[in-house]
């Protein structure tokens, strides 16, 4: 009993949403738990699957092959002067991350019901961990992208220093989506049927199979409301030297920031009743 009473933290438990909702400070305090949750998912994933690491490489690689045949060869899709396989893979690597993270994150709260019912921790760690886990796959598949770059003798220019920022924008986009979908799917179980469809549509409004330069100039900024457009174009700019997303980036950043703030507010309003709704 060496601790003086004044040093003890005081917790107030009251009705209403603020009582158990997360604060940034609380999330920071629980960063080790976040690490362990990501670590758990990574470990389990690579223990359970036979192909382990190969899966994270296979998915974008096979999609690239299909895209190259159908869009590159048959449809003769323009690719900003870059070999089509490289053009599509540079986009598929961040896109695959996003699609995996969004679907992972959306089911994360429902999937962690048991844990949530038995112990308190900032609930937002659950979707956050689910979004960070596929980043490990992102790194691995990025390695494959580098191999393909070397194969085509392409050397990235100075723009490559911006690559981590584009990757961060991709992770934040996935997190913003997940804040909404994970909280919504606790309440409305049909969210899980809607999401695969939504991601499919999203793939077509993102310049993965085609270049953003195909979009008429005056529509580009509206187009950039989809932050993944900037992420995907950013990856290409940084690695292949294609035209920079330019002012599209500003629109995308604002869009992500707005979605994050609103998503966090919605998540907070729901997280207090997650246990009771389950």
């Amino acid at each position: 009993m060496s601790t003086p009473p004044a040093a003890l933290p005081v917790t107030h438990i009251r009705p209403g949403t603020r009582a158990v909702s997360f604060t940034m400070q609380e999330v920071w305090h629980a960063r080790e738990l976040l690490y362990f949750l990501v670590w758990r998912d990574v470990k389990v994933r690579y223990k359970q699957t036979v192909l382990g690491v190969a899966w994270s490489v296979m998915q974008p690689l096979l999609t690239m092959v299909v895209f190259t045949i159908f869009f590159g060869r048959l449809a003769k899709m323009p690719s900003d002067g870059v070999p089509y396989p490289l053009f599509s893979l540079a986009a598929l690597v961040p896109w695959t991350y996003f699609a995996t993270a969004a679907s992972n994150g959306s089911s994360s709260l429902v999937g962690s019901q048991h844990l949530i019912a038995k112990v308190y921790f900032p609930r937002v760690l659950v979707p956050l961990a689910a979004v960070l886990m596929p980043a490990v796959d992102l790194v691995i598949s990025f390695g494959m992208l580098l191999v393909l770059l070397a194969w085509y003798h392409v050397t990235p220019g100075a723009g490559v220093v911006l690559l981590p920022l584009y990757a961060a924008l991709g992770i934040l986009t996935a997190f913003a989506v997940t804040l909404w979908t994970s909280a919504l799917s606790v309440r409305y179980r049909d969210a899980r049927y809607v999401l695969p469809f939504l991601i499919q549509i999203w793939l077509f409004v993102t310049p993965v199979a085609y270049p953003a330069s195909m979009i008429p100039e005056r529509w580009r900024l509206v187009y950039a409301l989809n932050p993944m457009a900037t992420v995907v174009e950013g990856f290409r700019t940084a690695l292949l030297g294609t035209p920079s997303p330019g002012s599209m980036a500003a629109v995308s950043i604002v869009a992500v920031a707005a979605a994050l703030v609103a998503g966090a507010a919605y998540f907070r309003s729901v997280e207090g009743s997650i246990v009771d709704l389950a």
Partner: peptide, 9 residues
């Protein structure tokens, strides 16, 4: 803190 009270504190 797993669930919230309806009233009181």
């Amino acid at each position: 803190r797993i669930t919230q009270p309806t009233e009181g504190e």
